[in-house]
Amino acid sequence: MKYSTQVKPISYLKSNAAEVIKELSESREPMLITQNGEAKLVVMDVRSYEEHQETLAMLKLLALGKQQLENGEYRDAEDVFSELDSKDDL
Rank of each mutant, 00 (worst) to 15 (best):
P30K: 07
V46R: 15
L56D: 05
S25C: 13
T55P: 00
D79C: 01
L61Q: 15
G72L: 05
T5H: 11
D45M: 00
S15L: 12
P30H: 02
E19W: 06
N16Y: 04
Q6H: 10
N16H: 08
K87N: 00
T5E: 15
S25L: 05
P30L: 10
S11T: 10
L41P: 05
L61T: 14
K87Q: 11
G37N: 04
L24D: 01
E51A: 07
K8G: 00
V43K: 00
A18L: 04
L61Y: 09
G65F: 11
S86Q: 11
Y74S: 05
R75S: 14
M58V: 13
E23G: 05
A17W: 03
V43W: 00
K14L: 14
H52M: 12
M58T: 09
S25F: 04
T34H: 02
N36M: 09
E38K: 12
T34G: 04
R28D: 10
E29Y: 08
A77R: 10
T5K: 13
E70Q: 15
I33D: 01
A17K: 03
E73V: 08
Y12S: 01
Q6D: 07
P9G: 08
N16M: 00
A63W: 07
L56V: 12
S48L: 04
Q68L: 15
K14E: 15
E26G: 05
A18K: 08
S82G: 03
G72P: 05
L62T: 00
V20R: 02
L41R: 07
Q67S: 14
A17Q: 02
Y12P: 02
L69I: 15
E38F: 09
V20W: 02
N16S: 04
R47P: 01
L61M: 13
T55M: 14
E23H: 08
I10G: 00
Q35R: 14
R47F: 10
A18P: 06
M31F: 06
R75V: 09
Q6N: 12
S11E: 11
E50P: 05
E54I: 12
A17R: 09
I21D: 03
A18D: 08
D88Y: 12
Q6A: 12
L13C: 00
E38N: 06
D85R: 11
Y12H: 08
Y3H: 10
L69Q: 13
F81K: 08
S25N: 15
K8I: 15
K2N: 12
E83P: 04
V20H: 03
L13Y: 05
N36G: 08
L84F: 06
E23K: 13
Y74M: 01
K66D: 09
S27K: 03
M1Q: 01
E23C: 10
E83H: 03
G37D: 01
K2Q: 10
Y49P: 01
V20D: 00
D76P: 13
L32E: 07
I21S: 01
M58Q: 13
R75W: 07
A57R: 10
E54N: 07
S4G: 07
I10W: 05
D79S: 11
P30R: 05
K8Q: 08
E23A: 11
S86F: 02
Y74R: 01
K14P: 02
S27V: 06
K66H: 14
L61S: 15
S11F: 07
L24K: 03
K40I: 06
E54G: 06
V46P: 02
Y3A: 06
E29L: 14
V42R: 03
P9Q: 06
E29G: 03
R47K: 13
E50R: 13
T34C: 04
